[in-house]
Design a protein around this nucleic acid. Structure first.
Lengths: 337, 337
DNA sequence: CTCAGCCGTTAAAACGTTTCAACATCGAGG
DNA sequence: CCTCGATGTTGAAACGTTTTAACGGCTGAG
């Protein structure tokens, strides 16, 4: 079982040289049909499995790319991953998924491992954009849903400032003048950008900056959204916002649940806008208005950029998508006063 | 940039032999501190990255395991994966995630690749238990959330018959006598088992078998649940069930949404029980009663079994966990008639 | 002063492929 | 009959590590 049959065992068993076996494996057309059959039979009979390490060592190629994802439990990222996987598959590559779970040290470990594995390329949504944690180590790296400060690598992102603006403008148009924004921590670029967009929407509408109540959370999970909901309801009713813009759908779902539990109705007592438009947003009991990002496309595009890095004349590119507001029941028009 | 610095470049640069560099990398304690520093400096300076292919080829070891997951978009599996990852990390292994997306051909491709990569072991929730698609190829394989017909490999599973029984018994105790079961396709073992459990619950309670209306779906997604909801409401009210047991939480969430949209209340008009107890179940606007599986533990246990396969006297083991009913608002006690 | 023993270092042999130049074999064209 | 090109096959040299046994220099005991 363990004596690990190699290419030379196959060769001997088929009465040919190892070079021929290799040819059968890599350029089947170059070897005569008869011999090919004989070799294939031998492979089958001996249960030969090609040793990828040796192959890669010699050939240099790898046929594998990796996506280091920020949070595998967030459907947003699994959707991006689907796009990556599809594009990779079309190009003949396989995809290894690695979950950093927002943990810098895991991220570092995985990057190290992937570099050592000599994968053809790495896609990553990094924990922290600033951290120069991942220096150039020869393996192409493309940032997903993040922008590079410097232009040292390709990136694919979505205009989060615009997204925030769309969301809050929609709320203002629906008659809201006291609006909460839920999200955090502020160390995350996305959260900062989306808040900036929200503020811009207020300014555009001629509303004062303090029309926006910022409720900072410690993360972007459902539980954090629930907590924010309790804080929100605890505010004196004169100052309590009539609408909330959440930095992501998980928060929005938590907020929604919190409202229901406290006997408040969405959108009547509080309108809610989420961000990402994950499937659960549409499937919530009160379907969520949300800012849609082109998730699969994000993944596909990132993958294409990554695979293009091998071209000799490669220039780093930065693609930026436009988000889109999807209106649902959670912000149904407020009854006119 | 491309001239790929190797161990011998480092050696030369530090004025030692390549064996010493290798020792610094693998047994730092055996080399004199002074030389070690010199070598480390050279590594840093040249930006050396160890070539894992060569290492693995020579050393035989791999430090990587893989989990081929059935559906990366289902939170149930990402939770299992978390358990796997934690256990792997503790044992000093890294985890590669592969998503078969319920597609047999993808699954086959990934298995082939992983065997060729000579990963230390493979965890898999297979698309189809019957398919002998993955023969023994020398790499240990452990089944997750599935049982083996034959005892040829380890497996970790949950008692799905019991789970179905728990769910439906709970509904019966709440006074329901017309119950729907939503799930499918029946080619999935889990669905069959859970239905069997449901039937058993009816029998135990002395109810006729036709008290259970089986609504078969084409898959286990949210959208399928919505569709089932419409079918359910379309039934003549005399025969319409007052409670539904869904084969997984995604279906239950879809069903829930469908009810709300059609103006029916949960649990008053229809009680709903899901399965898996994913986070979104508790976070739904009407928190879902669900059958909880020990997800992280499933992953952890499977990983331990996998890593134990290398022991010389290894015997294949089959671990089976008990599920647990978590009661929430979606099945709040029916008002006594 | 010699010798055993220890320590740190090294030369060289693997590991299992791919690849390349060279080599047979054969039929056809001159 | 010789040469040529095409077609299939092969021997041997890489690829970049790890590993083993051997080596030289030093120390302290005899």
């Amino acid at each position: 079982m363990k004596p690990s049959v190699g290419i030379r065992d196959v060769a001997q068993h088929a009465g040919v040289s190892n070079a021929t076996v290799s040819n059968v494996l890599n350029r089947p057309d170059v070897v005569a049909p008869a011999t090919r059959q004989r070799v294939l039979a031998a492979i089958e009979e001996l249960g030969f499995v090609r040793n990828e390490s040796a192959r890669q060592l010699r050939a240099g190629r790898s046929r594998v790319i990796a996506y280091v994802v920020l949070d595998a439990a967030n459907p947003f990222f699994t959707d991006v991953a689907r796009g990556v996987e599809d594009a990779a598959r079309e190009a003949g590559f396989s995809l290894f998924l690695c979950n950093s779970a927002s943990d810098g040290s895991r991220e570092r470990d995985y990057l190290e491992l992937l570099h050592e594995q000599r994968v053809e390329g790495i896609l990553i949504t990094p924990v922290d954009t600033e951290s120069a944690g991942f220096a150039d180590r020869g393996t192409p790296v493309v940032l997903v849903d993040r922008e590079t400060a410097d232009g040292t690598r390709c990136s694919v992102a979505v205009d989060d400032v615009l997204g925030g603006e769309l969301a809050v403008t929609h709320l203002i148009e629906n008659g809201h003048t006291r609006i909460a924004m839920v999200g955090g921590p502020l160390s995350i670029q996305q959260v900062r950008d989306r808040r900036e967009g929200a503020v811009r929407a207020l300014t555009n509408a001629g509303l004062p900056a303090d029309a926006l109540t910022f409720l900072e959370t410690r993360g972007l999970q459902v539980a954090e959204g629930r907590g924010a909901g309790e804080r929100l309801v605890g505010l004196p009713s004169s100052r309590r916002p009539t609408a909330a813009f959440c930095a992501n759908d998980l928060l929005a779902l938590g907020l929604l649940q919190s409202m229901t539990q406290q006997g408040l109705r969405v959108p009547d007592d509080l309108a809610v806008v989420g961000y990402d438009d994950i499937e659960f947003a549409a499937a919530a009991a009160v379907p969520l208005t949300s800012v849609r990002q082109p998730r699969e496309q994000l993944g596909r595009t990132a993958t294409r950029l990554l695979l293009a890095e091998h071209e000799q004349d490669h220039e780093h590119r930065h693609v930026k998508f436009q988000p889109e507001l999807v209106v649902r029941a959670s912000t149904a028009v407020k009854r006119s006063t």
